[in-house]
Amino acid sequence: MLPRAMLRMPEHDLARVTAIPVSCSDGLGTVVRPFLYGLARQVDELESLATPRLADNVADLVGTLLAEHTGADRTPQHDDGRQMLTQHILTYMEQRLADPELGPGRIAAAHHISRRYLYKLLAEHGYTVSGWIREHRLARCRRDLADPTLSHLPVGAIGSRWGFPGPAHFSHAFKAAYGISPSEVRTMQCQGPAQAR
């Protein structure tokens, strides 16, 4: 139900929790369960408000729950420096998603490492540099396409503001990732929840 990129977890960790029940009777589950039930009870009202920011927060909370379940946050002591560097790199990329010049060379130079080492660090977490950037840019575009306050922006402008070089490239990448075109997402949003059903 959530785009994988929004969970901000390595693929190998996501694979460990796919189709696996997660307890809601201990740990973070005791907080997440009532929160999600509350959202479900108010889903019609929330859909009419179209709250993409809330969707991001829900994804973060679910991702944190899954990370707790996989033990992803518990890393060996000797890996702390490497893990910290990887986290700095991911944060750097996240903050610069809108920059069309964001790429391996710039990222590696900003962290004083070689491209090869950059590729290795991200590969350990199940990512490629370009794949991570593309997935996160597309997730931001999808969020913006569903945001009624941005409905005045052309679809191509949404892609452009998140670093895609042109409308055709953006549309192709979006459809390949989600099976639906950006224009169709925008149309569904304009119809509203009731009509879309």
Rank of each mutant, 00 (worst) to 15 (best):
V22M: 04
S23P: 02
C24R: 05
C24W: 00
C24K: 04
S25P: 00
S25C: 11
D26Y: 03
V31Y: 03
V32W: 07
V32D: 10
R33F: 12
R33S: 14
R33I: 02
R33M: 11
P34A: 01
F35P: 03
Y37A: 15
A40P: 00
R41F: 06
R41D: 15
V43K: 11
D44F: 05
D44Q: 10
E47T: 06
E47K: 12
L49T: 00
L49I: 04
A50S: 13
P52Y: 07
P52V: 06
R53F: 04
L54M: 12
D56C: 05
V58D: 08
L61C: 12
G63Q: 00
H69V: 13
D73M: 12
D73C: 13
R74K: 09
R74F: 01
T75A: 11
T75R: 15
Q77A: 13
D79H: 08
G81L: 09
R82Y: 01
Q83M: 07
Q83C: 06
L85R: 11
L85P: 05
T86M: 13
T86D: 08
H88I: 04
I89L: 12
T91P: 00
Y92L: 12
Q95A: 14
L97H: 07
L97A: 08
L97I: 09
A98L: 07
D99V: 01
P100M: 07
E101N: 08
L102Q: 02
L102R: 01
G103C: 08
G103F: 04
G103I: 03
P104G: 08
G105T: 09
G105E: 14
R106A: 03
R106M: 02
I107S: 04
I107V: 15
A108I: 10
H111R: 06
H111S: 00
H112F: 03
I113T: 08
S114T: 13
R115N: 14
R115L: 10
Y119E: 13
K120A: 13
L121E: 07
L121Y: 03
L121K: 04
L122C: 09
E124V: 02
E124W: 01
H125F: 07
G126C: 07
Y127M: 09
Y127L: 08
V129M: 09
G131M: 06
R134G: 01
